[in-house]
């Protein structure tokens, strides 16, 4: 390998490192700030302290406010509910749109895409009337369903794309062997689109985990049902001076589980291909 070739091999890494520089610097500050009394630029002022992280041990605002673990559990349950429902429903729908011919199929696809053009904040009032009619206002189920609904266009389109990429031959063989459509979908097709499911699961989980506008709009108060993002706002204020160290600490705490979740699913994304193309005809 010549020097020139070696240099060329370094170029992609150089581009990557430069591209993530602001991210690295910014997150370095976040971590630093959560452990220092104060910071000026990247320079710490004052002492190393753990006080911003004390919320892990005791509720920072006294007994009336839920502990961080309770809030974390709530957030996890909402995000998990959302991930499961979004993946299931999208996978069902994506399959039908990819594999079955029925009237309105094309129209449905273009329409779901166009729905994404409606800013969710403007649909809140309309959504409220629906929740009210269903008697789901101020309930966790209502919040979960609304978030699932807003995630649908994305999920359906993503899943359809992945189903399109799966060979028909294998499926046909299974159908000829007498399997039902649902069985084929579950046993034959779904395993071959794990990367797609992982991608959708990541996005669904993140949007559930960081959800703020919808839980805040459709529930009363941020008490025992609070999610992490809603809880985080207790640390902030505009004119009220903010405890920046605590905001960054809670923010990092909220970030860590999703990052771990991502690492886990990303692994799945990568490994699925290592054993060669199993799904081929």
């Amino acid at each position: 390998m010549t020097v020139r070739q070696r240099l060329w091999r370094g170029v992609p890494y150089l581009i990557l490192v430069l591209s993530v520089l602001p991210i690295i610097v910014g997150y370095f500050w976040l971590v630093l700030s959560s452990f220092m009394t104060r910071t000026e630029g990247l320079l710490p002022v004052g002492n190393l302290t753990l006080k911003h992280w004390s919320f892990l041990l005791e509720p920072p605002f006294g007994r009336g406010y839920p502990s961080i673990w309770r809030v974390t559990l709530n957030t996890f349950l909402i995000a998990a509910f959302m991930t499961i429902v979004v993946v299931l429903v999208s996978a069902l729908t994506g399959y039908a749109l990819s594999r079955l011919n029925f009237p309105g199929r094309k129209g449905f696809l273009s329409l779901t895409l166009i729905l994404h053009a409606f800013p969710s904040v403007t649909l809140l009032i309309g959504t409220f009337f629906v929740l009210r009619a269903l008697n789901l206002y101020n309930t966790s189920l209502g919040v979960g369903l609304v978030m699932v609904g807003f995630e649908m266009p994305f999920g359906i389109w993503l899943m359809k794309g992945f189903f399109d990429g799966v060979s028909w031959d294998m499926e046909r063989a299974a159908l000829i062997d007498g399997a039902s459509r649902l069985q084929v979908w579950w046993q034959v097709i779904l395993p071959t689109i794990k990367p797609g499911i992982a991608a959708l699961a990541i996005f669904a989980f993140i949007s559930g985990w960081n959800a703020w506008l919808i839980p805040k709009t459709f529930t009363i108060g941020a008490g025992q049902q609070a999610t992490l993002s809603v809880y985080l706002q207790n640390f902030q204020g505009e004119t009220v001076a903010v405890d920046w160290g605590s905001v960054t600490a809670v923010g990092l705490f909220q970030l860590i589980p999703v990052a771990i979740f991502f690492i886990f699913t990303q692994d799945l994304l990568l490994n699925i291909y290592s054993g060669g193309a199993k799904g081929g005809a």
């Binding site: 999208s90 399959y95 199929r105 009032i125 009337f129 629906v130 269903l134 359906i156």
Partner: peptide
Amino acid sequence: RAAWAFMSPAVLLITLFFFIPVIVL
């Protein structure tokens, strides 16, 4: 029938949380 079985959950969700709110909008 198969198409309906596969499509109905999404159709229901989208009708409730997209179509109706959009019409309201």
